[in-house]
Design a protein around this nucleic acid. Sequence first.
DNA 1: TGAAATTGTGCACTATAATGCACAAAAAGT
DNA 2: ACTTTTTGTGCATTATAGTGCACAATTTCA
Lengths: 186, 186
Amino acid sequence: MENLSHCIGENLKRLRAEQALSLDGVAKLSGVSKSMLGQVERGEVSPTVSTLWRIANGLKVSFSSLVKRSQDDPEVIPRDEVGPLIEDGGKVRNYPIFPFDAERSFEMYRVEIDPGGYLPAEGHNTGAQEFITLHSGQLAIRVGEAEHTLDPGDSIRFKADVPHSYHNPGGDLARMSMVIYYARSS
Amino acid sequence: MENLSHCIGENLKRLRAEQALSLDGVAKLSGVSKSMLGQVERGEVSPTVSTLWRIANGLKVSFSSLVKRSQDDPEVIPRDEVGPLIEDGGKVRNYPIFPFDAERSFEMYRVEIDPGGYLPAEGHNTGAQEFITLHSGQLAIRVGEAEHTLDPGDSIRFKADVPHSYHNPGGDLARMSMVIYYARSS
DNA sequence: TGAAATTGTGCACTATAATGCACAAAAAGT
DNA sequence: ACTTTTTGTGCATTATAGTGCACAATTTCA
């Protein structure tokens, strides 16, 4: 279940089927147009919370039942299905594989840094930690004052609640996995 | 906590305060513009689920923590704060006082019908029931084939999963409270 | 098997969510 | 007290959610 919109679409389609309703039927019950309902089901749009609320009311289901992601287990995320966040003019590409989830309270990225690429980062929440494994290329990580250099296969864990930065000093593409963990708050 | 947008605004404002962040800070963390965040906090807009999701990620909180309504208890809904759904060209005014909530699984309306006003209704979900108390005026309710006439102070309960209708045959305004209960599904 | 109703999709148009910049008020630093 | 930074709001513009109608495919019923 890739993105939220697509997930909502699946939920709506399922809930509608359970009540054996047509798009037209749901439209009359909820006051949301048939076209919009179709687009939501296909995951083509990101509905506003107000329309989502009207749909939930029309179907007499909870708001969260439309938003909740089915916890498929195991869950496979194909490489091509996740687009990168571009940094440093394209030299740094950040692929969010498992985005933040309040349940598990960490997020996982796949990061690529071209030779010479540089990415500074502000400190995260207090207590946050990062776990990085470098798979290929070279990586220099600065945390506060200290700098650490990683070779392929090396890993690092550090407290990420202070400013830090990533830099590829080598001549090859640097590829790594990064996990950011957020300390559970009150 | 009147409507959903206003409710989300309160949640965001509170969560932002807990982390001692400025609008600008949340904007940087979430990728949502400062202006939009301000409008969301003030309840001026109904954000899309995607922006709400980005905000939740930026703050590292769950999606539902932004949507959840604080269960104030007791909860007072002033008369003027709830606008009517207009039917039969204005002769029937339907005020949703306590909208549907999956938790309690019923909803409550205050309904006014002018003399001669008529409102047909399709059957609701199977197992649904209606509970009506007439406070003033006259009310004739047709359920399936049978018709029932109510005088001020009378109440009625009936299975509402079949087509039914409301009619004011008298010369005075008919005022009533209506509760619709939906049988809990699997 | 044809007519009539019902289903979901496509498209032009409208309403509004979302952005970026500028501004005024408050807070912090000198 | 004056400057400098940070705070939140207002406004013009852009992007997109949302609507209504029409269409094609399917289903229903005579």
